[in-house]
Lab assay of single mutants.
Amino acid sequence: MIHRILNHSVDKKGHVHYLIKWRDLPYDQASWESEDVEIQDYDLFKQSYWNHR
């Protein structure tokens, strides 16, 4: 379960990846995930991330 999205990056092919802080895990366990991976409520977290940038 996502706690929040910390950052994003765009690779050379134009694909967006998000650095995800996972609920109940420390920050050093955050991981980069592609924008099209199937994660519960991912779209809501991405929308919230962009609304607050």
Rank of each mutant, 00 (worst) to 15 (best):
I2E: 06
I2A: 00
H3W: 10
H3R: 08
H3C: 12
H3K: 06
H3L: 07
R4T: 13
I5N: 00
I5G: 00
I5K: 04
I5P: 06
I5Y: 00
L6F: 04
L6Q: 05
N7G: 08
N7W: 06
H8S: 04
H8Q: 02
S9V: 08
S9A: 08
S9T: 13
S9R: 15
S9P: 03
S9M: 12
S9N: 07
V10R: 09
V10C: 06
V10A: 06
V10H: 06
V10G: 01
D11K: 00
D11Q: 00
K12Y: 11
K12C: 14
K12D: 12
K13Q: 11
K13G: 08
K13M: 11
G14W: 04
G14R: 03
G14N: 07
H15G: 13
H15Y: 08
V16M: 13
V16G: 03
V16K: 12
H17G: 03
H17M: 13
Y18A: 05
Y18P: 02
Y18W: 03
L19M: 10
L19F: 06
L19T: 03
L19N: 09
I20Q: 01
I20N: 02
I20H: 02
I20S: 03
I20R: 04
K21R: 07
K21T: 00
K21F: 06
W22I: 03
R23H: 11
R23N: 07
R23P: 02
D24G: 12
D24C: 06
L25R: 14
P26V: 03
P26K: 06
P26Q: 05
P26Y: 08
Y27V: 15
D28L: 06
D28Y: 07
D28T: 12
Q29P: 03
Q29K: 15
A30F: 06
A30C: 11
A30G: 00
S31C: 06
S31Y: 04
S31N: 05
S31W: 03
W32Q: 04
W32N: 03
W32L: 04
W32K: 00
E33D: 00
S34L: 08
S34T: 08
S34E: 14
S34C: 15
E35D: 09
E35W: 05
E35A: 11
V37Q: 14
E38M: 12
E38W: 09
E38I: 12
E38H: 09
I39E: 00
I39F: 15
I39M: 07
I39C: 04
Q40A: 13
Q40E: 13
Q40H: 12
D41E: 07
Y42G: 04
D43L: 07
D43T: 08
D43K: 07
L44K: 15
L44N: 12
L44A: 14
F45N: 05
F45V: 05
K46Q: 07
K46L: 05
K46C: 00
K46P: 01
Q47N: 15
Q47Y: 08
S48G: 10
S48I: 11
W50H: 03
W50P: 02
W50I: 02
W50Q: 00
N51L: 10
N51W: 07
N51F: 12
R53G: 10
R53T: 10
R53S: 11
R53P: 07
R53F: 11
